[in-house]
């Protein structure tokens, strides 16, 4: 066998392979950057300062910060309920009914997403104080709801559009009332879309500090607001880091659970996940 007839061997490092390796390296570099601030907080939360050590910082989260966590969960839960009540019927009507000026209306309902938090905060602070005379927890809940409901609307609208109208027609032809059709056919079938909306709203509202800073009632301090206030007044204390890490872990857990159950495709159109 002459050398000329032996097939050329694949080079160990072809340019194609190098490109592949570089691609993966780039992705991971960016991912590390994403997670770096979190990892920094994590390492700091486990650090020592003033005697309290390691996991002791986390004891503080559920001890002295317990109230703040509780408020965060409560505010977030109530906000999600209001978001649902606003978005489910609106998304249904926008997709199924002939609404004059549909595009414009949808854009107007999406707009809260694009108003800077500080502007929403200031405008609500002033109207709550001078017009609506609200100074209870509900002011905060409503503020969270108006800022987050567009996030819930989009995945529900997409899910409704992906649901053939035939299922509803079949249900009605089989004798179901409108309400029976909504409850037994429409809601279950758009469930994943609704859940995607719930998840998005959850992670945004649960971690919201800016609008909260403007409109929170004096006695009420949610966990993210607590983090914000402590960072400003108390520097970078490990216990503060522990609270921030806890908040992010809870949020991350919600994301992971959702991904495991429903997958990732239900965020189509949200441009967020």
């Amino acid at each position: 066998m002459s050398a000329a007839s032996t097939p050329r061997r694949r080079p160990l490092l072809s340019s194609r392979r190098l490109a592949t390796i570089a691609s993966h390296a780039y992705i991971w570099l960016c991912l590390i950057l994403f997670v770096l601030p979190f990892l920094a907080l994590l390492s700091q939360s486990l650090g020592q300062r003033g005697g309290a050590s390691g996991l002791g910082n986390y004891a503080a989260v559920f001890g002295s910060f317990g109230d703040n966590l509780f408020w965060s969960f409560k505010i977030t839960g109530l906000t999600l309920l209001i978001d649902l009540a606003a978005c489910l019927p609106a998304a249904y009507a926008l997709v199924r009914y002939p609404v004059p000026g549909k595009r414009l209306l949808f854009s107007l309902l999406q707009l809260p997403l694009y108003v800077p938090g500080a502007v929403i905060g200031l405008s609500l602070l002033l109207t709550y104080t001078f017009v609506y005379k609200i100074d209870s927890m509900w002011g905060l809940v409503l503020a969270m709801a108006v800022g987050s409901f567009p996030l819930m609307m989009t995945p529900i609208v997409v899910a409704m559009k992906d649901l053939p109208v035939m299922f509803e027609e079949a249900s009605e032809c089989l004798g179901a009332t409108k309400w029976q059709t909504y409850r037994r056919i429409v809601f279950p079938l758009i469930g994943p879309g609704v859940s995607a909306g719930l998840l998005l709203c959850f992670i945004i509202v649960f971690n919201e500090y800016l609008v909260t800073l403007f409109v929170h009632p004096p006695a009420l301090e949610t966990a993210p607001l607590k983090v914000f206030n402590l960072v400003r007044t108390n520097g970078l204390a490990p216990t503060t880091a522990a609270l921030a890490v806890t908040m992010q872990l809870i949020s991350f857990l919600a994301v992971i659970v959702f991904f495991r159950i429903f997958g990732t495709r239900h965020f189509k159109g949200t441009y967020i996940l």
Partner: peptide, 9 residues
């Protein structure tokens, strides 16, 4: 009513 597609839930 039987639809074009089976339309089973």
């Amino acid at each position: 009513f039987v639809f074009q597609a089976p339309a089973l839930f």
